[in-house]
């Protein structure tokens, strides 16, 4: 009998965690869920990529770990999507946000500022490529 109770408590535990997690997901995202992101491959295919041809920018975006915090065209961390950012921000604003400097530094948490500080070490050419590439990201989220 005690064995049965033990197994029951295991199921209760599982149900509790899954239930609360789902509740959390709903409370966190009250509107209809964004379309399930496509199963992404290591490199976003051309159709998944926002319009733009700047290969270096796309490559840097992945290699520099931007996708661990940002999504673009459905790839990456959906918490901070960058879709349409090119339509909203001017190049020098983009540069400030990427590196977490200037006015951006005031909004970002200390941890993110620390993470972004390393992008200050990117070469001017790389930074310019990223800015140019994001500048072309004008399409809304897929």
């Amino acid at each position: 009998m005690r064995e049965r109770i033990a197994i029951l408590v295991c199921w209760l535990t599982l149900g509790l965690v899954v239930g609360l997690s789902w509740l959390f997901a709903l409370r966190h995202n009250p509107v209809a869920p964004p379309p399930a992101p496509s199963v992404s491959v290591a490199a976003p295919g051309p159709e998944a990529r926002p319009p733009g041809t700047n290969e270096a920018g796309a490559r840097l975006f992945r290699e520099q770990g931007c996708t661990s915090c940002h999504a673009l065209g459905g790839n990456g961390n959906p918490r901070y999507p960058l879709d349409g950012v090119g339509a909203r921000l001017k190049p020098d604003e983009l540069r400030a946000w990427i590196t977490g400097t200037g006015p951006a530094a005031g909004t970002l948490s200390a941890m993110v500022v620390r993470r972004k500080a390393r992008y200050l070490e990117l070469s001017d050419a790389d930074l310019a490529a990223l800015v140019a590439w994001l500048g072309e990201a004008r399409a809304p989220a897929p």
Partner: peptide
């Protein structure tokens, strides 16, 4: 939020 699937996965990790 980061989408339901995303936040659900996060919460599962904590649980």
């Amino acid at each position: 939020g980061g989408g339901r699937a995303w936040d659900f996965a996060m919460a599962l990790g904590f649980g």
